[in-house]
Simulated assay, not measured.
Amino acid sequence: MVRSRCFTQAARFFALALLLLTLAASRSAFAAQTSLTWYGQSAFKLTTPSGKVLLIDPWITNPVNPNGKADVAALTHVDLILISHGHFDHIGDSVAIAKATGAKLVATGDLAGALVAYAGYPKDQAGMDTQGNFGGSLSLLDGEVEITFIPAIHSSAVTPPAGDDHGLGPQYGGSPGGFLIQVKNGPTIYHTGDTDVFSDMSLIPHHHKVDVMLACIGGHYTMGPEGAADAVKLVNPGVVIPMHFGTFPALAGTPAEFDAALKARGVKTKLQTLKVGDTIELK
């Protein structure tokens, strides 16, 4: 009888300990979310559940980010820098950040070559393992992220820094594009880069359900609110976050206009507008 009672108590203790461990593991898994920070224009920081850091088009010291220099200084750990095309407002602070952190460059082969030759990106951080082309995918960071290159309708040229161009002027930077980023145990994110809407966007959800779409809406150089709403209808993401607006007077498209255009098309995607410096969790 005593032995039976002791066994029952031990079993209860074991069950309680197992429950507590399960709850702790669940709480830890819940806490380890993918986070996204917007720095203005098309610049984002993506942090994976394990703490890997990806920067996308990191023009962090842009005119609408008053904390740009401090934000760059705070980036002491960066694993990958993704650059969609060769324009200055997308290359941004990438070279300085790469030199400070050792971050590898993710770009098309043509763009990577131009960034090394004309913008000063460290050559040993721009290898073939992180270069690709449209339709191709890269499994990086020990499989924690898979990045697929998506075309864009725009242009691309790399302009050497002032005084360093030797009279060359803008140099060929390959074709412009965007990125589809799949995070292991996390969301799938589509960064459009600079683009107009194009019908082949409708193919993306046939292969990958997009959780978050980062869509340019400014107009003038890219699609504006109306075109961006058409793009969202084609991609059908869970959430859309507008970008590439308001940095210059020419980028006049607004989130309010974008919201109205989405509603006019009956699009059910959630619109989430960020302020510069905002960080959100992507569940």
Rank of each mutant, 00 (worst) to 15 (best):
G169P: 05
R265W: 04
D129Q: 09
T195P: 02
S155D: 11
R3E: 15
A256Q: 12
Y39P: 00
A162D: 10
K123D: 13
T192N: 04
V106R: 00
D129S: 10
G127N: 06
G178A: 06
L234M: 13
T148G: 04
P161Q: 12
A10N: 14
F134L: 07
Y118I: 05
A10S: 13
L138N: 04
G127C: 06
D93E: 04
A73F: 12
G102Y: 08
S199I: 13
L20R: 15
V95S: 06
A114P: 05
L214Y: 02
T159Y: 09
M1D: 12
Q131I: 01
D230A: 10
P205K: 04
H244S: 10
Q131D: 01
F44N: 03
D230K: 11
H77R: 14
V53Q: 04
I181F: 05
F248N: 08
S137A: 14
A73L: 15
H208K: 15
A126L: 07
G169I: 02
I181K: 01
C216I: 09
T273A: 15
L271D: 05
S137L: 10
T108R: 01
T279H: 07
H154K: 11
V116S: 02
G127K: 07
C6A: 15
L46P: 06
Y190E: 03
F44L: 07
I83P: 00
F258V: 10
V158K: 01
M201H: 09
Q182C: 11
A43W: 03
M213C: 09
G135A: 08
F198N: 06
M243Y: 07
S199M: 10
P151S: 09
L180K: 06
R265P: 02
D79V: 10
A10W: 13
A152R: 00
L36K: 01
I147N: 00
V267G: 04
L180R: 06
M213W: 05
I150A: 01
H154P: 09
A73M: 13
T47S: 10
D164M: 11
N133D: 06
T273Q: 15
Q41A: 08
L262V: 03
D93W: 02
M128S: 15
T8K: 15
V158C: 01
F14Y: 12
I280P: 00
I241P: 00
R12L: 15
V2Q: 14
S94I: 03
G68I: 04
D71E: 07
A31V: 12
L23N: 11
S175V: 14
K52Y: 12
L19S: 13
G224S: 07
Q131R: 07
L23F: 12
A98D: 01
Y190L: 12
R5W: 14
Y172G: 03
G40S: 05
T130W: 00
L203H: 09
L138A: 05
F13S: 13
D142Y: 03
T47C: 06
A117E: 09
A252R: 08
S156M: 08
A228F: 07
T188M: 09
L271G: 06
G68D: 03
Q33S: 09
G174F: 03
L55M: 08
R12P: 08
Y172I: 05
Q182F: 10
Q41H: 10
S4Q: 14
F134N: 03
T108D: 00
T108S: 01
T148S: 06
V197D: 11
A74S: 13
A25Y: 08
A43M: 04
I56F: 08
T279F: 09
V232D: 00
F134D: 04
G178E: 02
L214E: 00
E144F: 08
